[in-house]
């Protein structure tokens, strides 16, 4: 009887684990929402659709907040908009320094986008950052921006010369850095979001009540926003280095 019970428990656990694997795989797989019927069908992934939703939310919020802007006697809405812009600009500028003022709006946009994307899982959507495509795209744009900033600041010749600094022998490593930087940016964001997601799912299966809520605060909200900050911080650090 005892043995049977034990086996039974084991069985349920294993069955649960099996279910978990299936569920995880299902959640982790970014589904193709619809297919564009050209070139033999291009599947548009869920992450892109969710990105559209985020874009819509951000743009609508921006439009609502910046309606009827005035210089004095401002409305509360305008105060909110000004606070958001000033805080974001200040935050990014403190990271990138005064030389990179040109890149502040892009970085602020990315910061807000990643922040929303990381916590949108709470609203029942699948986080776009859980899709490698999105993080890879972000990382590629970052590296393009970094190298572009370097070229813009110094010109092609000096930019190329910078690869041989401080001594010529490190040139391969410097060139390699162009590829490892976006890779690490991409993988850090992707892994963090995925990892916290997997841990949360495991936790929900083991302890279904109360505890997940507490951990959700850390893994979903804090870690999500922190990773957005880290992504922008590292990008601005690289840009700062490139324009120096």
């Amino acid at each position: 009887m005892e043995l049977y019970n034990n086996n039974d428990f084991k069985f349920t656990l294993i069955k649960n684990m099996g279910n978990l694997t299936e569920k995880l795989m299902e959640e982790l797989n970014c589904e193709t929402v619809f297919t564009i019927p050209v070139f033999g069908g291009i599947g548009v992934a869920e992450s892109v659709v969710v990105t559209w939703i985020i874009m819509a939310v951000m743009v609508i919020a921006a439009i609502i907040l910046t309606r009827n802007l005035r210089v004095d006697h401002i409305s509360r809405r305008q105060a909110v908009a000004e606070t958001i812009v000033t805080k974001l600009n200040g935050m990014v500028e403190s990271m990138i320094g005064p030389e990179g003022k040109r890149y502040v709006p892009y970085l602020a946009t990315v910061l807000v986008y990643i922040g929303i994307a990381n916590i949108i899982g709470l609203f029942g959507f699948k986080s776009p950052t859980k899709d490698l495509n999105v993080t890879a795209a972000l990382a590629i744009m970052s590296i393009v921006l970094i190298e572009g900033a370097g070229i813009y600041q110094h010109g092609v010749k000096k930019w190329l010369h910078k690869f041989t600094e401080p001594i010529a022998i490190v040139t391969p490593i410097n060139i390699l850095e162009v590829f490892t930087r976006p890779l690490s940016l991409c993988m850090r964001l992707f892994g963090n979001v995925l990892g916290s997601y997997v841990i949360m799912e495991l936790l929900k299966i083991i302890v279904p009540v109360v505890v997940p809520a507490v951990f959700c605060l850390y893994f979903d909200i804090f870690d999500g926003l922190l990773q957005a900050y880290v992504f922008v911080f590292l990008t601005s650090l690289y840009i700062k280095e490139a324009v120096e």
Binding site: C30, G43, M55, I63, A137
Partner: peptide, 21 residues
Amino acid sequence: NLLFTVINLLLLFVLMKMFLF
């Protein structure tokens, strides 16, 4: 989808710059 995301992000950047910043 990578390309789509890049386009999305650029569009988002332009829109945000236009409507917020």
